[in-house]
Design a binder for these strands. Structure first.
Lengths: 341, 341
DNA sequence: AAGAATAATGACAGCGCTACCATAAAACGC
DNA sequence: GCGTTTTATGGTAGCGCTGTCATTATTCTT
């Protein structure tokens, strides 16, 4: 006598079989209607849909994923949620997949490749359809799984490197370089850098290096630089600029790794009565709305976060299979002239 | 002759059975080790763990969820990602569950209950362990599923209403009321409101009503109000204040539904040379870092977004079963005195 | 020392769905 | 008009786990 376990397990939750019985069709036909797959006669579809509505049937994705060895989940690993930058990326991803069957599972890595690896492995347990992560730098184990997995991979933000599958972003080294050129052209000579100590923020580091390269080419170098511990905030930027100017009163321009810190710098200048742009140039990175809404719009570089997320997700949707060729999409960046440098 | 489908399906991906074979144990024992469940001898555990490491075994959560009729997924439905408020909530949730087996699946509702319902139903297909959403107002269908589902439910931000299971947040009506009282005490009499037109932002609406109530009690009322279409941004706040003051030059204080817009208002005052606080008070809502980093810190109300997310997730982790009693947790709010009102 | 409780492990069915193959009817080609 | 393709549907065997029950050591009572 076979033991039936179904007693009160999912009592009341209708299954494909229930729908099939009510509609007078086989399970597989119902399944095809649900997935919109294969040829189905209009009359059949109507009948099945009615049965689904009547029962309030909700497909069990765990069963579906198990049977097909593939899920509709899209793993998204972001370095942080504290800054609006990554929510913007997530928003782009969400916009691209909102009308599809894909659902984003998100993890936060704190800019730590080891945490990234741990979360990645735990997410692979769902056999995701795609994995989206930030940057091209991962642990060897993570890289191995990314390369061997049966899913699409998109690496965002950065394109200076060798992607697993798709890379969407911009060259941060070039952004830093262009920042330097831009400011040199405007006559600035005594450069300061007010940064943070996020060692794993490869993008900020690349911009810093690009900046230094531009200075070197022009026979210049950073006169002074300081870094705050942690990720850098508006308040940190404000306090850091005060310290930096105390140590190097002769700076004529200060570059910040992001707009948040740069805005803090502007607030310090307002507070201290320092004439922005004429006496001290301020330059940021990201092109946040708030920087552009200020009385003096911030001079900065617009990174296209939303576009990066959206483009990546759209690209991933194009094919379930990983193509032979790797793809690199450069979304570029715009220098925002602004009024602070 | 039984057809084997396993041919190249998951070629190479080791299963529980593979681990069991290598470790010389039964599948169920391996399963118990993986799930850290039931009594396991130390020697056995060591042996199994070694086999897992050797094979690089990754459990298949789809199979696990199917067998146990429960997943480790936590559904998170947020109204928006454009504003840092909801990423802050998400950050709190993530902080609470980061060391657990739970994984957040996120959806964005655009403040639309119908979209919320649609996403909710599609997420229920994963048999989530918990559902987190914003506000206490949902479609009847959504509410029905929330009440009947075999998962915990947390409704965030708002506590003015009847929750399904747990509500964590603050009274927005009271926040609006206290804003009014606070400003009246400081001598302001000619109130303006510069808002947005997000009809479904129930929280902003409740604050507005609370504000009006405080004014009414004091024999006052709004002298002028204006709203921008959409959700409101710094730039919108800036432009809106200009228009509002053009129509009502005699206002002595303006309340904004959020800090972003209020900061825009401050920028307009700086630009137009209006003496903030003495000539015109500015009051926001949220207590964003940037508002406090400004030369004149913004007068506002601190909503404890991170705490709300974290508290809710922690509370959900306490028990898998929904308790008989509903829980309402008031995280409260702080009035930030600031220097703008 | 006999019985009871506990610790440690296993056998096996079945969770709800989809891949794979098969089949029958309708449409098509020339 | 007879093969051939296309359209529409179904039977069935798993997918990889875990719940349930069973079994055998081991330890504890008194």
């Amino acid at each position: 006598m076979t033991r039936k376990r179904n007693t009160n397990r999912n009592a009341g939750t209708p299954t494909l079989a229930d729908v099939a019985r009510l509609a007078g069709m086989s399970e597989i036909t119902v399944s095809r209607v649900v997935r919109n797959q294969g040829p189905i006669a209009d009359a059949t579809r109507t009948r099945v849909l009615a049965a689904i509505a009547q029962l309030g049937y909700i497909p069990n994705r765990a069963a579906g994923s198990l049977a097909s060895a593939a899920s509709t989940l899209m793993t998204v690993l972001l370095p942080s949620l504290s800054n609006i930058v990554f929510p913007d990326v997530l928003r782009g991803i969400h916009t691209a997949i909102t009308e599809t069957a894909f659902q984003p599972v998100i993890g936060v890595t704190d800019y730590d490749p080891l945490i990234e690896e741990r979360i990645l492995l735990s997410f692979l347990a769902w056999q995701p359809a795609a994995v989206i992560l930030a940057g091209l730098h991962h642990t060897p184990t993570a890289r191995k799984h990314l390369e061997q997995g049966r899913f699409r991979v998109a690496e965002l933000m950065d394109i200076d490197g060798d992607p697993v599958d798709i890379a969407v972003g911009m060259s941060h080294r070039q952004a830093g370089y262009e920042t330097g050129r831009h400011l040199i052209e405007r006559g600035y000579r005594r450069f300061g850098y007010a940064g943070h100590m996020l060692i794993s923020d490869d993008r900020a580091k690349a911009r810093y290096q690009g900046l230094c390269e531009a200075l070197r080419e022009a026979g210049l170098s950073l006169v002074g630089e300081m870094r705050v511990p942690g990720g850098g905030s508006t308040i940190a930027g404000r306090e850091l600029l005060e310290k930096l100017l105390a140590a190097h009163p002769d700076l004529d321009v200060v570059i910040f790794p992001n707009d948040d810190m740069a805005i803090g710098g502007i607030f310090y200048c307002i507070h201290a009565g320092i004439l922005i742009k004429e006496r001290l140039g301020i330059f940021g990175f990201n092109g946040l709305d708030i920087g552009q809404a200020m009385p003096l719009p911030l001079s900065t570089i617009l990174s296209k976060r939303f576009l990066i997320g959206k483009t990546a997700a759209e690209k991933l949707l194009e094919s379930r299979e990983r193509p032979a060729e790797k793809t690199i999409i450069n979304t570029g960046f715009d220098i925002i002239e602004g009024a602070t440098a």
